[in-house]
Design a binder for these strands. Structure first.
Length: 251
DNA sequence: CGTATCCTGACC
DNA sequence: GGTCAGGATACG
């Protein structure tokens, strides 16, 4: 999002296009054409959502989902093999929505229309503390790990960092969300802040092989817990893999 | 609440 | 060929 911001803020769109059926459904040519000659006033992030605010009050909403990323290129460059949509600016900059699985969201919202779903507190907000967690988790019946990944509970936390935060705070991913004690929620809130700090996470994407194994539990099934040596386990929760240490993460 | 679904690619 | 993948949503 920061790279996007640097590349497009204050610039004017020359052309835009989706080039994959899944993207075209949400961003048809008629919509793409409406972006022409619009200036991008600002780029904003909310949770995992990116909002490009245009000079006519409309908002272009982008969400990478699983695999998405922005490629910043030039209009002279050939399109990347996995580019599913792109926006070209009048200065020759092109931003490509690179998304092999084509699961990303790209949608233009006219002025006045809400581009965002309901979202909880930002994962990196200093106001995210134990009392806040207590109140948003109070009426959840299920386990904590899926609750942490619910964007209405916390905006911006996903599968990796939910697992990392639970490992750091020594809380079982299966712990019932509503019945976690305040002291443990305090550890959890601190852990969320910690694991998201840039100095505590890999500088690249986790699939960039050189950055794997940089997590404490995520994707470490069968390896030794870095705290107690116990073998890291993988379970399924809400259809997603959860990695955790069965010994030092307690319910 | 969990599950199926949207997609394609990497890896076994 | 099967399994898994950083996410969200519609549905039961």
């Amino acid at each position: 999002m920061r790279r996007l911001k640097r590349a497009v803020e204050g610039k004017t769109i020359a052309n835009a296009k989706a080039i994959h059926p899944a993207l075209l459904r949400q961003f048809p040519d008629a919509t793409a054409r409406r972006l022409r000659q619009r200036t991008i006033d600002s780029v904003e992030r909310r949770g995992k959502h990116q909002l490009l605010h245009l000079d006519n009050g409309a908002t272009l909403h982008a969400h990478f989902r699983m695999n998405g990323d922005w490629l910043i290129t030039s209009t002279e460059d050939p399109l990347d093999r996995f580019t599913r949509a792109f926006i070209e600016l009048t200065d020759g900059t092109r931003i490509e929505l690179q998304d092999s699985r084509a699961l990303a969201a790209l949608k233009l919202h006219p002025k006045g229309e809400d581009a965002l779903p309901a979202l909880g507190i930002e994962a990196n907000d200093a106001m995210l503390d134990a009392p806040h967690l207590k109140s948003v988790l109070a009426k959840r019946r299920g386990p904590i790990k899926p609750a942490l990944m619910d964007q209405k509970v916390i905006a911006g936390l996903g599968n990796i960092y939910a697992a990392e935060a639970l490992w750091r705070s020594m809380i079982s991913p299966r712990a019932v969300a509503s019945s976690i004690s305040l002291p443990r929620l305090e550890r959890l809130a601190d852990a969320i802040g910690f694991v998201l700090k840039s100095k505590n996470r890999p500088p690249g994407r986790y699939t960039d092989n050189e950055f794997r194994g940089r997590f404490q539990v995520y994707d470490r099934e069968g390896e030794a817990c870095r705290r107690c040596g116990t073998t890291i386990k993988r379970i399924q929760q809400a259809g997603r893999s959860t990695y955790f240490c069965p010994k030092c993460q307690r319910s």
